[in-house]
Design a protein around this nucleic acid. Structure first.
Length: 505
RNA sequence: GAUUCCGUAGCUCAGCUGGUAGAGCAAUACACUUUUAAUGUAUGGGUCCUGGGUUCGAGUCCCAGCGGGAUCACCA
């Protein structure tokens, strides 16, 4: 390896490897280390005299985060997966004989912040009242060759914390080490997904896997990532949605299927969009979108409680409550409420006029559905902070949705808005194959008109519907956005372990 | 894609109207057996994002590029 680009500190750490070799110590040893406790458990449960016998022989391992060398004894902070705990390392304790090499050499000179060590010892409380480990044995487990950013703290206040987003996202491994709250966010993300999975499993839903590589990217209107299958010599697409596959399974006789689907869309990135993102979709036979609204309320209320302990959360200084039931408003009423205009009886040209009056950019390729969508996005969406179901969408913007049971021109669809963003989208699913074919054909017409996000016709999906799909309701939840809400993050990058970044040179 | 702000030591950041680069932490050496942003003394450490230009002289001014953030556009 070319040493020229290494920093002074990196060179010094590499040279320490040679000293390890001279001492006959492997700085990357193979044997397992028999950990039997952890920092958080000890801090939570050690009570001093009354139960110190239970903590007479603890074994833990982790990363050295700071060292305060006092001469023949020293204090250090060890960080394991559960948190930090102070170590007290005394020379004559870890080197009881004549040979003081382990303390004087290995510990005082060869151990750096960031190194991984294992310790055995007993728990005690220092003069200043801090629960600590009095180390009896110390084992070197892994040398860290690259210095971590140094973050200090006192009384809960943090100094010199690493905040550079580029460093944090590109080197998430280092971010996780030095910014403990980052790990908490991802623990919560795991709790969120577990909570949803439990909810669904406990009601009899079945988790399935459907293709990520698809020859027709269906189920949503979005630009796909394109790739190529060499053996078949055909273009393939990374899925933009899994909807049409899950419905095929309803045709096949599953009553309730779900999938946490990683979807890919070849579009811009911002605080709420990443090119790959996670959606929970589920489809339930013999249900409609009214049932789905109630189910959604229950699912999200439980999720909020499981993640944060109660049904509220705070984002951007706003308190949001997931306590069921949520508000409901029809799309036309929402537009009427925020623009004062009732578009319910209007045709495409009239709505186009309304858009122009409201200073909304329109293009000839936009159909009625798209125009209404623009009106809603521009004038209404951001007003819905508390969870609100927007219901009964115009048929033109919902090619996979069943027509409304009583309101002509509308479909049985809702989106759930929270903090001004869509976090779920649900329908009474269209199961009439003749109607579905006609809707696909309208999409083709839109495509010919210049809408490059209109849907392709999926003939195999139509064939499945022809066998008969029971009345079904389905929904997709934006997991990343829900995670943002429940963890109080305002950027999607902070709920993705490895957000998309331009490659480094 | 557009606009705008930013890029200086391992980290956090100074660096004025242009004059040969600075602090704290970290590192190195020494001292110290209950410290905790440990302390004390000493020392070393830089492709000032990259490439051009202006100038006697550029971290600083100008242009282009690279990377990141924010806003907007796109995105159901």
């Amino acid at each position: 390896m070319n040493i020229a680009h290494l920093s002074e500190q990196e060179i010094i750490r590499r040279e320490k490897l040679k000293e390890f070799a001279q001492l006959g110590i492997d700085p990357f040893p193979a044997p397992l280390f028999p950990v039997n406790s952890n920092a958080a458990y000890i801090k939570a449960n050690y009570k001093g005299e009354e139960n110190k016998a239970d903590f007479a022989e603890v074994v833990l391992a982790g990363r050295v985060m700071s060292i305060r060398d006092m001469g023949k004894a020293s204090f250090a902070v060890l960080q394991d997966s559960t948190g930090k705990i102070q170590l007290y390392v005394k020379r004559d304790e870890i080197c009881p004989g004549e040979d003081k090499t382990l303390y004087d050499k290995v510990w005082k000179h060869l151990t750096d912040m960031g190194d991984i060590i294992g310790v055995k010892g007993y728990v005690f409380t220092t003069k200043t009242g801090e629960t600590s480990i009095h180390v009896r044995e110390l084992v070197f487990l892994t040398k860290s060759l690259k210095p971590l950013p140094v973050v200090k703290e006192k009384e809960g206040e943090t100094f010199d914390a690493v905040t550079d987003p580029e460093f944090r996202y590109r080197q998430r491994y280092a971010d996780l080490i030095v910014n403990p709250q980052v790990k908490e966010t991802f623990v919560k993300r795991s709790k969120l997904i577990n909570s949803m999975r439990e909810f669904l499993n406990s009601r009899g839903a079945i988790e399935v896997d459907t293709p990520v590589l698809q020859s027709i990217p269906g189920g949503a209107a979005a630009r796909p990532f394109t790739t190529h299958h060499n053996a078949l010599d055909i273009p393939m697409y990374l899925r933009i949605a899994n909807e049409l596959y899950l419905k095929r399974l309803i045709v096949g006789g599953f009553d309730w299927v779900y999938e946490f689907s990683r979807n890919f869309r070849n579009e811009g990135m911002d605080r709420t969009h990443n090119p790959e993102f996670t959606v929970l979709e589920f489809y339930t036979a013999y249900k409609d979108y009214l049932w789905m609204m109630e189910t959604t309320e229950q699912l999200l209320e439980k999720a909020a409680i499981d993640v944060n302990g109660d049904s509220t959360c705070e984002v951007d200084g706003k308190q949001i409550s997931f306590k069921a039931p949520f508000a409901r408003i029809t799309m036309y009423d929402a537009i009427k409420q925020y623009t004062g205009i009732d578009i319910s009886g209007m045709n495409e040209d009239q709505i186009r006029e309304v858009c122009k009056q409201q200073h909304i950019h329109v293009e000839p390729s936009m159909g009625k559905g798209k125009l209404i969508d623009e009106l809603f996005s521009e004038k209404c969406e951001h007003h819905f902070i508390q969870p609100t179901f927007i219901i009964d969408y115009p048929v033109e913007m919902s090619p996979l949705t069943k027509k409304h049971r009583s309101k002509p021109g509308l479909v049985e669809r809702f989106e759930l808005m929270v903090n001004g963003k869509e976090i779920a989208n649900a329908y009474s699913e269209l199961n009439d194959p003749i109607d579905q074919r006609a809707r696909f054909e309208e999409q083709v017409a839109l495509m010919e008109r210049g809408d490059d996000e209109a849907m392709f016709i999926d003939y195999d999906f139509l064939r499945a519907l022809e066998y008969g799909m029971p009345p079904t309701s389905g929904i997709g939840f934006g997991i990343d956005r829900i995670c943002m809400l429940l963890t109080g993050q305002s950027s999607i990058q902070d709920v993705l372990l490895f957000p998309m970044m331009r490659p480094e040179k």
